[in-house]
Design a protein around this nucleic acid. Sequence first.
DNA 1: AGCAAGATCGGT
DNA 2: CCGATCTTGCTG
Length: 171
Amino acid sequence: MLRLSSDFFTRDVLDVAPDLIGKILVRKVKSEIQKFIITETEAYRGREDLACHASKGLTPRTEVMFREGGVVYVYLIYGMYWMLNFVTEKEGNPQAVLIRGIENYNGPGKLTKFLGIDKSFYGEDLSISDRIWIEEGTSKINYKTTPRIGIDYAGEPWKNKPWRYVLTSIK
DNA sequence: AGCAAGATCGGT
DNA sequence: CCGATCTTGCTG
């Protein structure tokens, strides 16, 4: 199957996040390759989006989001769960897609634990990595949108933006 | 230097 | 509904 190049990620996160639904997340551990359909994503869009970590500006933690799209942004939440994100857009425009679900593993904290994703993936380049990348899916899919989960603190209008994308069926 | 809160999850 | 568990950004 075809690995998605950085061109796929250097677009607006509101285009990339829904386009990732139905794509294949590939994880390679010691020459063993595992593939999963991506079922749920969320978009975090720039410095103005108060739910996006980049709204805090360029800090050691958010630095990777300011890079050219196509690299991995991971961070620890609640002291125990790693969140897996893919950076999007051009350099200097901080956006990222949170991977909230893959087939058989719903929940952003559960899937990273299952896949063995941790701090060592911070900044990993999806176009050349030999342990994580994305491949084109085969089928067309349908999805729905809802507000993002767990970001009520961001307030209006951010908490109600329909920037969560969930796979509903495969055509 | 200290502190409150967090893009979660599983058990009551 | 509540606790686990620790990094982070903000305050002082």
